[in-house]
């Protein structure tokens, strides 16, 4: 029962986030913007549509979006949710989350390579190459959390007080969130025909339910990173359940609005600079780790 409730939370709430981001962007640009639940109707529409496959694609092309979706939802399910805690917790589950996300990345890049298009191959190459730096930043940030709390499972790591490195860690995780979810300084989710894309370009040849699985998985992943960021920064475990739930909701909302603001106020980064920004995120994580390490000694 609890499992179903958790799954329902992740699956149902996730498509709200892209809608909220678009609403923020529209407001700042002076437009009315699509309704917040636009993605729900998009998904329903895609689900009913037919599928067109590339002649080059193997059966793997049909399976990959399903694998990616299962991996992302599995990773999300493992995340503790504020006062409700985690569904299970065991030492090292944090690594499982990181690697389930890697499995999703693998499946997406795989289906991009299926089409035999140079454009999509390019997107896959960029995605997996930048992920090297992104993963380093993410793992170092998680390591900082682990060192600070002395725990090796997510629930323990994310419950505690934020500590002195919270600002550094928050900044690093926010950059990783932007990179992993193809938001603005890295990639522009609005464009479809420009040569500077990473994620969007990989799914150009998906259609119908395949595209629906990809889009929904992306929304769940965004929510996952937002929850991770909020729980890493706010000491939710020390608050009363009601306050923690409210804090989590407010935090996720703030992150979403933040993404929208960044997207409206910043231009996409020159492509050669992307590794630089990711390295910056990595260094922020390293400093957060050093703060946690020194803090533990004294």
């Amino acid at each position: 029962m609890e499992t179903l409730a958790r799954l329902a939370f992740w699956l149902v709430v996730a498509p709200l986030l892209p809608g909220l981001i678009n609403r923020v962007k529209a407001r700042l640009a002076g437009r009315k913007g699509p309704p917040v639940w636009q993605l729900y109707s998009d998904l329903a529409r895609l689900w009913r549509k037919g599928v067109v496959l590339s002649r080059a694609a193997s059966p793997g092309f049909v399976l990959a979006p399903a694998v990616a979706w299962v991996a992302v939802v599995g990773a999300a399910w493992l995340m503790p949710l504020g006062p409700a805690g985690g569904p299970v917790h065991f030492a090292g589950d944090v690594i499982l989350v990181v690697y389930l996300l890697a499995l999703a990345r693998f499946a997406t890049a795989w289906s991009a390579m299926e089409t035999g298009s140079s454009f999509e191959g390019m997107g896959a190459a960029r995605e997996v190459s930048f992920a090297v730096l992104g993963e380093a930043a993410l793992l170092t940030g998680l390591l900082a959390l682990s060192v600070r709390s002395g725990q090796t499972h997510l629930e323990g790591m994310l419950a505690g007080s934020a500590g002195a490195g919270a600002v550094l860690l928050g900044a690093a995780l926010f950059v990783v969130l932007l990179a992993e979810n193809s938001r603005v300084p890295f990639d522009d989710p609005n464009t479809h025909l420009e040569l500077t894309m990473i994620h969007e370009v990989m799914v150009l040849d998906h259609s119908g339910p395949l595209l629906a699985a990809v889009l929904h998985g992306a929304a769940v992943k965004l929510l996952l990173f937002a929850v991770l960021l909020v729980e890493a920064v706010l000491p939710l475990g020390e608050w009363s359940p009601g306050a923690a739930a409210a804090g989590l909701a407010a935090g996720v909302l703030a992150v979403t609005v933040g993404v929208g603001l960044v997207e409206s106020l910043m231009a996409r980064l020159a492509f050669r600079r992307v590794p630089l920004l990711l390295t910056t995120a990595f260094l922020l994580s390293v400093f957060a780790l050093l703060v946690a390490w020194r803090g533990g000694v004294s």
């Binding site: 037919g50 599928v51 999509e120 040849d205």
Partner: peptide, 30 residues
């Protein structure tokens, strides 16, 4: 449900030669 087959859409670059696919050298470029 069934599906239709078509050329890779690729934003409209229909039927390039197969040697124009992303090669291993370009993949490792970054």
């Amino acid at each position: 449900r069934g599906w239709r087959r078509a050329v890779t859409w690729d934003c409209g670059y229909a039927a390039p030669t197969t040697r124009m696919q992303y090669s291993s050298g370009s993949f490792g470029g970054w």
